[in-house]
Design a protein around this nucleic acid. Structure first.
Lengths: 150, 150
DNA sequence: CTAGTTGCAAAGGATTTGCAACTGA
DNA sequence: TCAGTTGCAAATCCTTTGCAACTAG
C-alpha cells in the first residue's frame, strides 16, 4: 500500500475514534511506510527528529500504540525485551526468523504451520486470537562468518 | 527428574564452571523444582523469602540466568514484557498457549510443526538454534465466561 | 471555543550492575 | 586463604503517565 493511501486510512481511523490528525502523527505514519523492514520505537524517534515535526519520544510511543491498535502496524518483540514494529496494512501475515549474529529479521510464511496451529487450538477448545512464531539462529551470512572463525 | 537429581546436576554444572554451590542457589533450584508450572522472577523471589535463605532479588535474577544457561530452566516471555521460567531438565520440548483472560499457560507439542520449522530453516539456509511458538487467545473456561457475559 | 494533543520530565516495571562485606572449598 | 558470592541500592533500559501549555476542527 502506498504511503498516501495508508495516510488516508489513518485519517479515517482517527475520525471514527474522534481523534485528530496532527503533524507528529502524520510524520510517524509516513516514516513507518518509508521503511520496508522492522524498526524500534527509538529508530522511529530518530527518524521523526529528521523530519520537521520533532515529535517527542512520548508521542512516538503513543502513536505507535495507536497504529498497532488500528492494525496499521504489527508489533513483536525481538526476544531481548524490545518491541519491533512493521507496517502490515495490505501485507499478508508472516512469521519471522531472527539472526542472533546481526539481528536481521527474515520473513517467512507457512500455510501448513498456520493450519496446524488452528487445528491444535481447536483440539484444545482454545480460542485462538494471535500467535507468535519466531525462529532464532544464524542467517546464511553470519553462519558462514561463524564457521570461518571457528 | 527428582529435585535431588536436579540439585546434583546443578552441583556438577557449577563445579565445571568453577562456581560454588551456595544456600541461595540451592533454594532457588529446589523452589523451581517444586512448582510444576511457569513462574516469574518475582514469584521465585517470594518463594525463597519463605525458605530460610532470604536471597536478595538480585541473587534470584542472577541464579535464574545461570539456570537458563545450564539448561535447567527455559525462559519465555509472556507477551507483556515479563519473563516466565519453567524447569525443563528431563522434560521434552513443548510450546505454549497463553490465555489472555486468566494468564494460564497450557502446553502442547506438535511434531509436525517442529518438523516444518526445521524444513523452513533449511530451505533458507538458516541455522536454527531456538524457536518460540506461542498461541494467544482464550482458554476453554475464559472463552465460556466471555460468551456468557456478551 | 474546547476536547484532544503535545512535550517534558518524572514515574514505572523488569532486570542488571557496582561494590564492600561475606563465605564455601 | 581468597576467588567467587551476596545484599543492597543505584543504575539501566524500555515504556507509560501526569500535567500545563498548545492546537485542530
Amino acid at each position: 500500500m502506498r504511503p498516501e493511501d495508508a495516510l488516508e486510512r489513518f485519517e479515517v481511523f482517527l475520525r471514527n475514534k474522534k481523534l485528530r490528525m496532527t503533524r507528529p502523527r502524520r510524520d510517524i505514519l509516513l516514516s513507518a511506510w518509508e521503511t520496508h523492514s522492522h524498526f524500534t520505537a527509538e529508530e522511529m524517534f530518530s527518524w521523526v527528529q529528521q523530519r520537521d515535526s520533532n515529535a517527542a519520544r512520548a508521542t512516538v510511543y503513543r502513536t505507535l500504540n495507536l497504529l498497532v491498535e488500528g492494525k496499521f502496524l504489527a508489533s513483536m518483540n525481538n526476544g531481548q525485551g524490545t518491541q519491533l514494529y512493521e507496517h502490515i496494512l495490505g501485507h499478508t501475515h508472516h512469521d519471522h526468523m531472527i539472526c542472533r549474529g546481526c539481528n536481521r529479521v527474515l520473513e517467512f510464511r507457512s500455510e501448513e504451520i498456520e493450519r496446524l496451529q488452528e487445528e491444535i487450538a481447536e483440539q484444545n477448545n482454545f480460542q485462538l486470537v494471535h500467535h507468535v512464531l519466531r525462529l532464532e539462529g544464524y542467517c546464511p551470512k553470519c553462519r558462514t562468518a561463524q564457521s570461518e572463525s571457528a
